[in-house]
Design a protein around this nucleic acid. Structure first.
Lengths: 111, 111
DNA sequence: AATATATTCAACCTTTTGGTTGAATGTGAA
DNA sequence: TTCACATTCAACCAAAAGGTTGAATATATT
């Protein structure tokens, strides 16, 4: 039903630069908590909390293997965001074209 | 250049349900501050603050006409969001199809 | 000029957020 | 068993967010 709360969680999770960086890291493939945390200039605990926020938003899934937790990226929650944008037609109008073009340009850049 | 800060402002603005509702209202056309505020169960001042956040994110533009301020919706900041999503390819992959389909369904529903 | 309307500014309060450090838990390695 | 490692839990803190009320400002209306 795309509760407003779901959308809130998704957008709130996305609104933080650290969390966006984490997602970008994970979009390149699974990684453990420590690995994800390494590049950041903050405590492991802080990163762990950010991961929890992403997990609550279902943008990240955790797979426990012994003492290691493997994190992976989950795109599903973006459906709600896309839906909201579609509902706010004028809002979104034209953006889709821009996005399509961006993606096409990216494809064109790679052989 | 799509500063991380720009993206932050956009997504932070979008992360609040009141502000999303305001944008939806404005996507239906210009309105004054008081008009925008009316449906909400909070003080005019609170709504005024939300509008300032949307303005700072450039999602809303203000046109002063005497004592009345007319607000209108501005979609441009979403470019940065779209760009970020395009950059996080795996992240976004598949979502575009879903969005396209949603929009096509909407179009089909209207003669 | 006096009053009403549209809006923001300022001060304040409470809750949430993003970070810290230190201890606890669970698992693997010596 | 003992020690190291991976991760979270708990308590704490400062700053930001979201709301309130009351006063200020600017513009209309009478």
């Amino acid at each position: 039903m795309a509760t407003s709360q779901t959308l809130d969680r998704t957008l709130t999770a996305l609104a933080d630069p650290t969390r966006r960086a984490i997602l970008q890291r994970l979009s390149a493939g699974e990684a453990r908590v420590t690995e994800v945390a390494r590049p950041f200039n903050m405590s492991l605990n802080a990163v762990s909390k950010h991961i929890l926020v992403l997990e609550r938003a279902k943008l990240v899934k955790r797979r426990r293997m012994g003492r290691e937790h493997f994190l992976s990226y989950r795109p599903e929650p973006l459906d709600a965001a896309a839906k909201w944008m579609a509902e706010t037609r004028t809002f979104w109008a034209g953006r889709l074209d821009a996005l399509e073009q961006l993606l096409r340009e990216e494809d064109a850049a790679k052989p």
